[in-house]
């Protein structure tokens, strides 16, 4: 599925990296724990998280994750947007809970990593 469709399904807002809207997503991982994210080996992953700080972006950079959805109305700061732009990432803000966001995306075919 294209990220564009993800954004529509979630009624979400893209705050950085519009250029990636037509990129494909296949796998999704939901966690607030960066320690967990760093153990995932799947490529081309989209991250769903309620943790909005600079380490979310750094962790994604190291894990080759270029698509991040912030759930629970969490907002990306200017510093996060700047670092995300340097690393060609798309940042999406969503008002839904982690559970609702995960449910919608799972139902529409995104795959879990395990």
């Amino acid at each position: 599925m294209k990220i564009r469709e993800v954004v529509e399904l979630l009624n979400a807002k893209v705050v950085s990296g519009q250029a990636l809207l037509d990129a494909e997503v296949e796998y999704c991982f939901a966690s607030d724990l960066m320690s967990d994210v760093l153990t995932v080996e799947t490529d081309n992953l989209m991250l769903l998280t309620g943790l909005a700080n600079l380490q979310t972006i750094r962790t994604s950079e190291m894990s080759d994750i270029s698509k991040i959805i912030f759930v629970r109305k969490k907002k990306a700061t200017d510093e996060m947007i700047k670092l995300a732009a340097e690393n060609e990432m798309i940042l999406i803000e969503c008002d839904y809970s982690m559970f609702k966001t995960s449910g919608i995306l799972y139902k529409s075919g995104l795959k879990p990593v395990y």
């Binding site: 960066m34 320690s35 760093l38 943790l51």
Partner: peptide
């Protein structure tokens, strides 16, 4: 900050 799960050292080994 999203850390402190006790996963880091095992992950470094891996």
């Amino acid at each position: 900050m999203g850390f402190g799960a006790g996963m880091g050292l095992p992950n470094i080994k891996n």
